[in-house]
């Protein structure tokens, strides 16, 4: 994922205040939400446990919990 995020203030909803009251445009800049690049790799693997599997094939509880 790549992207950008800009705003006039990140935490001015509650707590902080804009730096320059008289020139909102001057507050425009990179946001706290700005994440320019994110790379993720994920996977799901089915474990060989429970009914019809290599391990604990006859264990009902194992099938319910793990199968």
């Amino acid at each position: 994922m790549i992207g950008d995020a800009l705003d006039t203030c990140d935490t001015c909803g509650n707590g902080d205040t804009m730096q320059n009251t008289y020139n909102h445009a001057a507050n425009w800049g990179t946001s706290e939400l700005d994440v320019r690049f994110r790379y993720t790799l994920d996977g799901v693997i089915e474990v060989p446990v429970g009914r019809g599997k290599l391990f604990l094939a006859n264990q009902k509880m194992a099938s319910v919990v793990l199968g």
Binding site: M1, I2, C9, L33
Partner: peptide
């Protein structure tokens, strides 16, 4: 306040 975001995924 203004906010602008763009994401390409």
């Amino acid at each position: 306040m203004r906010l602008s975001t763009r994401v390409f995924r």
